[in-house]
Amino acid sequence: MSSVVAALIISAPLLAAGPLLIALSGEVYGERGEGARTGYETVSPRVSAATYRLLGTLLTLSGAVSALAGAIWGVAVQALLLPPLLIASAVATIEYSRRLAIIEDLRHPPTGDKEEAVPTPSQAVKTFLTGAYAALIPIAILASLRLHTLGEDGIAVSLASLPALAGYTLYLTLTRPEAYAIPELGREAIRSLQVTIPLSLTLITAGVYLDIIGVQLFWPLLLVGLVLPIIPLLTFKT
């Protein structure tokens, strides 16, 4: 199989999802009443459609750029490139939808219904998560020191993508907790996911790093990391 075909297969999900999202934005725009969710709970169809279009465009571009990089420099480079491209696309979309949602909010008078503050994680949880993330730094340094003896692409991808994903979800929890909103889930479950997802990814990252540097007891961390996000889904009513 040529490197071009391999590169196209790896980027295929993005190349398919991007145009699909752009095409779907027309459907979203056509809905009346409540809009879809963009990460900021219910917003108007106009904001949803614009967000879909932007995300679709960014994913298509990310797919094309990563496929091109894969065809030229190989799939390892492509795999390293994908996480930052996806994260950049997600951050750009969330910031853009936030801007649109706030601007739209300026146009509509309040309904007069009883208001309730949208909860955000408490300071203690934020401090704990930040501490847990910072605790990874020495492990990351140790793992990096051994990188020259590890030639496998998979390890390099893990080293690059796992902390990036953990950092990204931590960024969401600390600055954009509303981004976890999922229509099918209850408030308690969403609140719990805001904490457990970054924590889970942090534990998985720590587990992988410990494995790379040769610490045998890495698997309890991986196990807890994998199970943790499931708990709120089972505990709280949807």
Partner: peptide
Amino acid sequence: VRAGRGPL
């Protein structure tokens, strides 16, 4: 803030 069933 959440008010009723409408948008935030």
